[in-house]
Amino acid sequence: MKWLRKDLEKYVQAKEYVDTVIIPVQMFQVVDENQLEKDSFDSEVLAIFANEIEKELSGRVMLAPAYTYVKGADLGREAERLNEWIKHLKQQPFKHIFVLTLDMQWKKSEASLDANLLWLPGLKPTNLQSQEAVQVIRGQIEQISELIRSYW
């Protein structure tokens, strides 16, 4: 389920079946020009992962809007804000909360998050529509889904 009217309609009917949230955590910047392509590509990849995992497990998983922060921000402070999101989510009966990111900096702040961090290695910038990219992404999605299911 996504945070869309038609899905939320379904959610209120079927709340007891939807116990998991995924928050994509996405970095944004326009200053470091050498990294612009890579950073924006990462954000596209993150969106694809988030969407595909949601598609696979949509009956039990709610995909939250992406939490976005500026590159180089104090992650301690960002973690505090993210924890507020998590606290908010837990007011519903969401049992499992996953934070999905490609920014490895979060790995070091993992302990301060009240959620499970899923850090994914990025891909080399490439055509995301190519057969190879689709195969690689599909394979990874299968494994991430399996990991999420192991918490259920």
């Binding site: 379904k10 079946y17 939807v18 696979e56 497990l57 949509s58 009956g59 889904s145």
Partner: peptide, 26 residues
């Protein structure tokens, strides 16, 4: 697409239920 809540079902998706389609969500 699972007709319950829309997850992705797989052929023999569970070792416990051979010869069936299985939905991992519920």
């Amino acid at each position: 697409i699972c007709t319950h809540l829309g997850c992705f079902v797989s052929w023999e998706g569970s070792e416990d239920y051979p010869n069936e389609f299985y939905c991992p969500c519920h």
